[in-house]
C-alpha cells in the first residue's frame, strides 16, 4: 500500500503544510491583532517565522536527499499491506470514535464498549469473558481515579457520574 519512499514524501508534505499555516496565520490573524510587526515587545511573528524558514530550508535539504539517495535503497522492503494496516487503522478509528462520544455520553457509557471493540480488533473471540474483563478494566480505573485521586471523569450530557 505505502512504501517508505511515499511515507517520506508524505512527511515532507506534512511539514510543508505546517510552514504554510505559519505564514498564513502571520498574514491574517497576527496582522489583524497587530502583533506581526514591531520590536520584541510587540512582534510575536518574528520568531515563529524564523523557525518556519529554518524548517523550510532543512526540508528542502531533506527533499534533495530523498530525491537523490533513497530510491536505490528502497525497492522491496517495508511495503505496508492492507492486511497489516487493518488493525492499527481499526484501533485508531475506534479510539477516535470513543473520544468523540466521550464528551456526549460520558465515560461510563462509552468506555466498556470501547474496550470490548479494541479486544475484538486485537483478536479476542467474542465471549462473556471479554465483556466482563472490559467492564472490570473500565470501572476499576474509574474507581481508582474518581474515588482516590478526585478526578471527575467526563459525565456527558446526562451528567453520569458515580458518587463512589
Amino acid at each position: 500500500m505505502l512504501g517508505k519512499k511515499q511515507v517520506n514524501w508524505l512527511v515532507i508534505v506534512f511539514f510543508a503544510i505546517i510552514i504554510a499555516v505559519v505564514f498564513q496565520q502571520i498574514h491574517t490573524s497576527m496582522t489583524e491583532q497587530g502583533i506581526a510587526t514591531g520590536g520584541p515587545y510587540d512582534n510575536a511573528a518574528a520568531y515563529p517565522r524564523a523557525i518556519a524558514i529554518l524548517i523550510g530550508l532543512l526540508l528542502m535539504l531533506q527533499a534533495a536527499v530523498s530525491w537523490f539517495r533513497e530510491p536505490t535503497t528502497d525497492t522491496d522492503a517495508d511495503e505496508l499491506t492492507m492486511k497489516q494496516a487493518y488493525r492499527p487503522l481499526a484501533l485508531l478509528g475506534i479510539f477516535a470514535l470513543y473520544l468523540g462520544l466521550l464528551g456526549v455520553l460520558g465515560y461510563h457509557l462509552t468506555t466498556t464498549p470501547m474496550i470490548i471493540a479494541l479486544l475484538l480488533v486485537c483478536g479476542a473471540r467474542p465471549s462473556l469473558r471479554i465483556i466482563v474483563t472490559a467492564a472490570l478494566i473500565a470501572f476499576t480505573l474509574a474507581y481508582f481515579f474518581e474515588a482516590h485521586l478526585k478526578v471527575v471523569l467526563p459525565g456527558g450530557i446526562y451528567g453520569l457520574n458515580i458518587p463512589w
Binding site: H108, Y158, G159, I162
Partner: peptide, 10 residues
C-alpha cells in the same frame, strides 16, 4: 450498565 449508571449518577 447504562441504567445502573443513570440511577447512580443522574
Amino acid at each position: 450498565g447504562a441504567l445502573a449508571a443513570m440511577t447512580l449518577g443522574a
